[in-house]
Structures are given as structure tokens and as C-alpha cells.
Amino acid sequence: MNDLVTQKGIVIMTKKGKNGHAVLSKDEKKRLRRKVWNRDKYLVYMMIPVIIYFLIFNYLPMGGLVMAFQKFKPGKGFVGIFTGEWVGLKWFRRFFKSAYAWRLIRNTFLLNFYSLIFGFPIPIIFAICITQIKNKFLQKGAQVITYLPYFISTVVVVGMMTNFLSPSSGIINQLIQKFGGEPINFMSEQDWFRPLYVISGSWQSFGFNSIIFVAAIMGISPDLYEAMTVDGANIRQTVWHLTLPMIRPTIVLLLIMSLGNMLNVGFEKVFLMYNEAVYETADVISTYVYRQGIASTNYSYAAAVGLFNSVVGFALVSIANRVSRKLNETAIW
């Protein structure tokens, strides 16, 4: 018996098989494929430039990771990444035996860890405060202003920091001297690197990061507040027992996502902030890769260190995503 069936959005005439499912003959499959192609070909044409872009600038470098297992020989163009002599895990062994491996992993981890501990609660607290403000002008103004630093370039942020903290003419050291202290050369003191990195990072992003929490708080039904207030709750209690529990899913999701990014540290900022005097606390994996690879042209070795970083990073993100899927049923992909 002939019947109309819909497959991949295309209606075709075919015989119905057992259980009423359509069984397509070879010829019909061909016909279906041609119809699908005729319908979708422009979509494919549209994607071609995009696919080429991703192949060249994302997948080709991924393939280029074979150089991490080779001794790099410069060849013509990027062909060099595929023509080296095979050395197996030599570069990885060299990295893990070197004194740097531990220092780099520790620094990368700690910069993220401190940024999380210090930087994560601030946007939440700020979002709670800003939604309690009744004065519209102050509320909107405070939001616009606190978003601003997020859009300033890292170069300018680090530039401001360097100049504010300069031992001779920076405002901070002028103040220290005014109160009778000795000027501190902040930018070349090991112990100051992490606090400076974390504080400036927080300064730059707390306003912007609060947006998502503000939206989550705004999404709470006003009736719930009304009900609590009628029951005699004060503001502190509504915040503690209503606002916080309601935005908990958002908090958990963002927390897991930042845990997943534990080994990705913004290269630019560390690179702009650090100098040889503070390598002990400041040098991270990505800056080491840059120095070894681009500056000292140990391409294969640097690629190996980079590969280690990518693999661990990928594993962390995958775990984080799986956990968030379980907890929130909202996955990132």
C-alpha cells in the first residue's frame, strides 16, 4: 500500500512496511537524498567559507599538535609542523623533569583559585545590594559606572596599575611616604603579584559579572517578597531565605563553569604585568609556552607544554559540564 511519509522534513511517497514504519527502497533513498540536497544546498554553500575558516584556524592547529611529539624542522610554510623527526614523549618528559613544571602548574592554579575565592562572591553581593536600591537614578547610574572597567583593554588596566604603584611617582607610594612609610616597589615584589592580579581583575569585572545575578534576582516573583513581608520578615530575612535560595542555581552553574576553567589563565594580563623579578609567583603555563616557543623558538617543546595545558583544560571543562548537567539539567553543550 502506498503512503506519504515524512523523512528529514521531506514528504515522499513510499510503501509502508511492518509496524507501519516506512521502508525505503534504494531508489527512494536516492530520491530522498537528492530532494534534501536540493532543499539544503544553499545552506551548505553558505557554510563553506565558515567551514574553511574553522578548518584552517582551528582544526589545522589541532592537527599541528603532532609537532609536540616531533623534533621540529622548519619547512616551507606550515608544512614544517608535519615533517619533524618522531621523538615520542621526549618533550613531555623534559617538561615534567624540569623545575618549571610544578611552579607553572601551581601558579596557574593559584591565580585562578584566588580569583575565584575573592572574585566570585563580590558580584553576588553587589547584585543583591543594587536590587535593594530604591532610587532609580542611583541604581542605573551605579550599574552603568561599574560596567565600564570591563570594556577597558588589559593594556590600559595594567598601565594604570603600573603607574599608580610606581615607586617614585605613583599615587599609592606618595601616600605611603606621606604617612611616613617606605615606598614599595609593588610590581617587582613576588609577594605582591597575586594580590595585585586578583584585585585588579575583580575591579575590572565585578560590575559586569553582576549582570547575570541582577537578572536572576529580578526574575523572582514580587509576590513572594510581598508574602514574606506580610508575614513580618525584615529585609535581611528576605535576602537570606528568599533571594539567595532562588538564585542558587545560577550561582552553582557559574561556579562550576569557573572551576572548569581552572587551568585557563588570561595570558595577556600576566604577560603585561610580570617581569623576571616575579617569575616565581607570576609565571604561568601560557606565558612559559610563549617564551619557550615564540621568544626562544623551541617550537616542539612549547607545543608539548601547550598540549598538556589544552588536554587538562578540556578534561576539566568536560567534568564541569557533566556535573552541571546533573545538578541543574542545564548543560553548556
Partner: peptide
Amino acid sequence: FFLAFTMYFSGGLIPAYMVVTGIG
């Protein structure tokens, strides 16, 4: 998937540098 995968894994700095300089 082809696009999304690039959000989570990358070849890293060195191979990318090779490719970009390699194509002139």
C-alpha cells in the same frame, strides 16, 4: 559539533602561530 568543539579544545599557541605565519 564541528563548531562547538573549538570552544573547548584548541591546538594552543604554537601550532596556531605556525599556521598563521605559514600562510603568509
